Simulated scan of single mutants.
Amino acid sequence: MENMIKRFKELTPELQAYAGGKGSMLAKMYQSGYPVPDGFVILPSAFENEKLNNKASEY
């Protein structure tokens, strides 16, 4: 699960490319101290055949 779902504070620059534009920007703003509510990004590795896989849904 380490690369399936990441909180904004945990999203590394390497994973930001997979987070999409909105997720990436929200994470950058959160990490920079802007008033962004705590949140998370579901990365593409959490999906199998266009459905959320079982490991990710346990999170």
Rank of each mutant, 00 (worst) to 15 (best):
M1A: 13
E2K: 14
E2L: 12
E2I: 01
N3F: 13
M4E: 06
M4K: 15
M4A: 03
I5F: 08
K6V: 00
R7T: 08
F8N: 04
E10N: 03
E10T: 01
E10F: 04
E10W: 05
L11Q: 04
T12C: 00
T12V: 04
T12K: 06
T12R: 07
T12L: 02
P13N: 12
E14M: 11
L15D: 08
Q16N: 10
A17S: 15
Y18L: 14
A19M: 06
A19G: 03
G20S: 07
G21K: 10
G21W: 00
K22A: 03
G23Q: 10
G23Y: 07
G23L: 09
S24E: 04
S24A: 14
S24C: 12
M25S: 12
L26D: 01
A27D: 04
K28M: 09
K28P: 00
K28Q: 13
K28A: 01
M29I: 03
M29N: 08
Y30T: 02
Q31V: 02
S32P: 03
S32Y: 07
S32I: 01
G33Q: 08
G33R: 09
G33I: 01
G33C: 08
Y34M: 14
Y34N: 05
V36G: 09
V36Y: 07
V36E: 07
P37G: 11
D38R: 03
D38Q: 06
D38W: 01
G39R: 07
V41Y: 05
V41I: 10
I42Q: 06
I42F: 00
I42G: 04
I42L: 06
L43N: 07
P44T: 10
P44Q: 12
S45V: 06
S45T: 14
A46G: 08
F47A: 08
F47H: 08
F47C: 07
F47W: 14
F47I: 09
E48G: 05
E48N: 12
E48L: 12
N49V: 06
N49H: 14
N49S: 13
K51W: 02
K51T: 08
L52H: 08
N53K: 09
N53F: 02
N53S: 05
N54V: 07
N54K: 11
N54D: 15
K55M: 12
K55D: 14
A56M: 00
S57A: 13
S57T: 08
Y59F: 15
